[in-house]
C-alpha cells in the first residue's frame, strides 16, 4: 500500500508541474475547492483540471433552456465560455453535444427541438474558436431524462444540452 501511494504521489506531482507550465492552463478556476489534497490531485479525477471529470463537474457540462426554446440563457453563455476555454486548452479532446427535451411534447418534435438546442451550443463554441471538426451534435429528444418527476422542477433540468468530452470521434 505504501509504495503504491508513493508512486501515485509522484505522478500527481509530475502532472501538477506540467499543468503549471501550460500558460492557458488553469485560469482562475482551479484554486477554489478543486484540489482535494494540500499539494496535488489525482490525475483523471475531478481535481485534475485537464480531465473530462473536471470539465463535467467543475466547469459544468450542461446548459439549460426555457420551455420550447433553443436560445442560450446568460447563465448558459457563461458556462459555454468556460467550456470553450477548456476545449482550447485541452485540444486533444473532441466533444459530442447532446440536445435533450422534457417530456411535454411529441416524440418527433422533441427530437427536432433537441437538435436545435445541441446546435445552439455548437454554434456558440464555434464562435469561441473551437474548430467544427472537434464538435458533433446528437439529439435525444425526450428519450433520456435525468429527472423523472412530472413537474417544472424536473422539466427544467431535462431541457438541456450536455457537452460530452470524448477522446475522439469514430463515426
Amino acid at each position: 500500500m505504501k509504495s503504491i501511494l508513493g508512486k501515485s504521489a509522484l505522478l500527481v506531482a509530475f502532472v501538477a508541474l506540467s499543468a503549471c507550465t501550460n500558460p492557458n492552463g488553469l485560469g482562475g478556476g482551479f484554486g477554489g475547492g478543486a484540489g482535494a489534497g494540500a499539494n496535488g490531485f489525482e490525475p483523471g479525477s475531478v481535481s485534475d483540471p485537464t480531465s473530462p471529470a473536471y470539465f463535467q463537474q467543475a466547469i459544468g457540462d450542461r446548459v439549460l433552456f426555457e420551455v420550447d426554446q433553443s436560445t442560450l440563457t446568460n447563465a448558459g453563455r457563461a458556462t459555454l465560455t468556460a467550456q470553450a476555454d477548456w476545449l482550447i486548452t485541452n485540444a486533444d479532446y473532441m466533444a459530442i453535444i447532446e440536445g435533450h427535451a422534457d417530456e411535454q411534447g411529441t416524440r418527433e418534435y422533441n427530437l427536432a427541438l433537441g437538435a436545435r438546442r445541441a446546435n445552439a451550443v455548437k454554434e456558440f463554441l464555434l464562435s469561441q474558436g473551437i474548430p467544427s471538426s472537434r464538435l458533433r451534435t446528437v439529439t435525444f429528444g425526450k428519450e433520456r431524462p435525468i429527472e423523472i418527476c412530472s413537474n417544472e422542477a424536473c422539466y427544467s433540468q431535462n431541457r438541456r444540452a450536455v457537452t460530452v468530452i470524448s477522446a475522439g470521434l469514430t463515426s
Binding site: 427530437l111 427536432a112 437538435a115 436545435r116 446546435n119 455548437k122 454554434e123 439529439t139
Partner: peptide, 9 residues
C-alpha cells in the same frame, strides 16, 4: 422522413 442539418429539421 426528417433530416436534421445544422440544427434545422
Amino acid at each position: 422522413f426528417s433530416v436534421t442539418d445544422g440544427g434545422n429539421s
